[in-house]
């Protein structure tokens, strides 16, 4: 699977996320409070809303539309109205850049 260069590490504040589009796919890339990086699919599984306008609290991301929450490390749906987990993608950091392994 190819590793795609998504952004620089300092493009994302700690405890925040950004949107990253690649081809027809859209991703959300997260910077955790511990300084780790994670990636999930970019759209909420409830109604296809971009998560990039949402709020990161610890290891949770809250969707901006109906406040559904996911654990962005595992993609697990944590709070209604989301019921379906988010897909997650492997991430590595090299030379100050964040790479996502795109399926």
């Amino acid at each position: 699977m190819p590793w795609i260069d998504a952004c620089a590490t300092d493009d994302i504040e700690e405890e925040d996320l950004i949107r990253f589009d690649h081809g027809s796919q859209t991703f959300a890339v997260y910077h955790s409070p511990e300084g780790e990086f994670y990636a999930t699919e970019g759209l909420c599984t409830h109604e296809n809303v971009h998560l990039c306008d949402g709020l990161v609290m610890g290891h949770l991301v809250e969707c901006p539309k109906h406040n559904g929450q996911f654990d962005y490390r595992t993609g697990e749906a944590m709070r209604p109205p989301v019921c379906v987990n988010l897909k997650t993608f492997p991430v590595k950091v090299e030379g100050g850049r964040v790479f996502i392994e795109v399926a």
Binding site: H46, E47, K65, H66, P80, P81
Partner: peptide, 10 residues
């Protein structure tokens, strides 16, 4: 009502 309110927002 949790779900009806989600629909009200969408």
């Amino acid at each position: 009502w949790r779900w009806s309110h989600a629909r009200h927002h969408s």
